[in-house]
């Protein structure tokens, strides 16, 4: 049971962004992708989620054997894919509680109503883990939230939706160390044999708190190096310069 990306090529307009990405994330594991800006990390996350700005030219993305690329965005989510956005959208007028409730309701069969009491109980307990004030239930989704509040809100949604595979896109950006610890606490609480994680980050810092099983380096639309969690530390020390020097280790 895994999320499998095979030889994925994708364009935005006429520009090639992904040039043959291969990656397998088995359930129970946390994989990190690091790499310089513009290497295609965020594009990969958007394509797995189903953003239509990108043209998939070839390759496959399957989740537990099911073809994801054939599905609509919302279908993929209901099937168990979750993206914690780097820049979550603001949705004026829609309260956070109603938003998450609608997302959960969408997972129920037609005619079945979400139990509101149980829902709020669950929501509040998850918010407590993330040290979020109750006022965030009635505030419009992400509207006027600070960077850190938005990221916590992403993790809150992830905890509520209990996806099979979680992709975190630069969740550490814009977070101070305290907020980072809280977010990591939420993610770590979700780690299980039943769930896989793909953590995209520019810096090693996040991986101190969310310890990965595997680290991959992405550059120019490909995974160019893979290793254990120590690879992140190496990159922290030596940077991505090795990519320019062409001393690509075998991925």
């Amino acid at each position: 049971m895994s999320l499998v990306i095979k030889d994925l090529h994708a364009n935005i307009d006429e520009t090639q962004i992904l040039k043959g990405v291969n990656l397998e994330i088995p359930k129970g594991e946390v994989h990190a992708i690091m790499g310089p800006n513009g290497s295609g990390k965020s594009t990969l996350s958007k394509i797995i989620t189903g953003h239509d700005d990108y043209d998939v030219k070839s390759g496959t993305v399957t989740m537990d054997g099911v073809d994801l690329l054939e599905m609509d965005v919302d279908e993929r989510s209901r099937e168990g894919v979750f993206l914690a956005f780097q820049y979550p959208a603001e949705v004026p007028g829609v309260s956070n509680a109603n938003f998450i409730r609608a997302a959960l309701q969408a997972r129920l069969p037609d005619g079945e109503e979400l139990d509101a009491v149980a829902y709020y109980k669950n929501l509040y307990s998850k918010m407590d883990v993330l040290e979020m004030d109750r006022k965030f239930t009635s505030r419009a989704v992400n509207e006027g939230f600070s960077g850190g509040e938005k990221k916590r809100n992403e993790i809150l949604q992830m905890m509520m939706l209990e996806p099979k595979y979680c992709i975190l896109d630069e969740t550490d950006s814009g977070l101070d160390i305290d907020a980072l610890k809280i977010v990591a606490k939420g993610v770590n609480a979700m780690r299980s044999e039943e769930r896989g994680f793909l953590v995209i980050t520019h810096y090693q810092r996040l991986l101190d708190y969310i310890q990965p099983d595997h680290v991959h380096v992405m550059s120019d639309g490909q995974i160019v190096k893979s290793g254990g969690k120590d690879l992140a530390l190496e990159l922290e020390e030596s940077g991505y310069d090795f990519l320019k020097e062409g001393e690509l280790a075998n991925a």
């Binding site: 189903g50 965005v73 919302d74 993206l83 959208a89 603001e90 949705v91 997302a103 969408a106 939706l161």
Partner: peptide, 13 residues
Amino acid sequence: EEIFYLRARGIPP
């Protein structure tokens, strides 16, 4: 962007 965000949480269009 708003629609994509909501759909990315499983809410049909």
